[in-house]
Design a protein around this nucleic acid. Structure first.
Lengths: 134, 134
DNA sequence: CTGCATGCAAACCGTTTGCATCCCC
DNA sequence: GGGGATGCAAACGGTTTGCATGCAG
């Protein structure tokens, strides 16, 4: 069984506390407020460990950084193509997709994920219209 | 308009030649056989340029590396969680998803992508059964 | 006690970038 | 001929890892 260290607990608590899907370094900053001497490596090691043991989700989304999710139920996401933020999206999961895909591919299918892309409200306000100044 | 350099042409040709979705460095290796002095930076610069101008697709898939696709029509993908390979998958694109999502999010939705995950035939053969030795 | 976990820092890997030179238009 | 494109190599950002020490069980 997975050993319950202070670091582990606090990382999990901080992740569960937010509805956003923080990156490892965002989580590092959050955790550091309570555990100033924690190392970034510890955060990475524990996130991977918890993801492997199914306690949390490691989101394989676009962008340069992986993001983490305390909600392990199957659900879809939307990513802001401007700032990279990721939010949950409340569209019902389509289980039939896997059945459909199974018929057309030699792969052994394990799952699927839908990722929407768009502009989040914050970024929308920042750039109401691309550029009408010239 | 986008300047037509030898490098550009050959990168595009090599990408169009394969049905796989190569990473930048895979493409670099392919192109280098015809253009031994090309630099990796040139490959990256041109792939980004061509993606921005809509000539090719930059796949925002999971994994550590970006992948590129000469087919710009909307379609879905499957990624092997063992070797990272990405293939097209022949499941009809669900346009209604965007409409559905629009109703439940404050984001301005631009698009969506479905990524299946599974084990490719090659990796399936390599590991017929995970480990039954204990 | 003892071995897994931590903190720290160096290493890694994919990607980006600055710069002098090159070559397409 | 001129400005964008190239080759090269150094820089970068995110992640991983080796090692001595620390602490949970």
């Amino acid at each position: 069984m997975i050993r319950l260290t202070t670091q582990r607990q606090i990382i999990l608590e901080e992740l569960a506390k937010v509805t956003s899907h923080p990156t490892a370094s965002e989580l590092y900053d959050m955790v550091r407020k309570r555990l100033p001497r924690i190392g970034l490596g510890t955060v990475y090691r524990n996130l991977d460990l918890m993801a492997d043991s199914g306690m949390i989700l490691k989101l394989e989304v676009g962008g340069t950084q992986k993001r983490f999710d305390a909600t392990t139920e199957d659900h879809y996401h939307i990513r802001c193509s401007s700032c990279g933020k990721v939010d949950d999206i409340d569209v019902p999961v389509i289980q039939e997709l896997v059945a459909q895909a199974t018929e057309t591919t030699p792969y052994l299918i394990m799952g699927h994920h839908v990722e929407f892309s768009g502009i989040c409200p914050t970024c929308r306000e920042k750039k109401p219209h691309p550029d009408t100044t010239d």
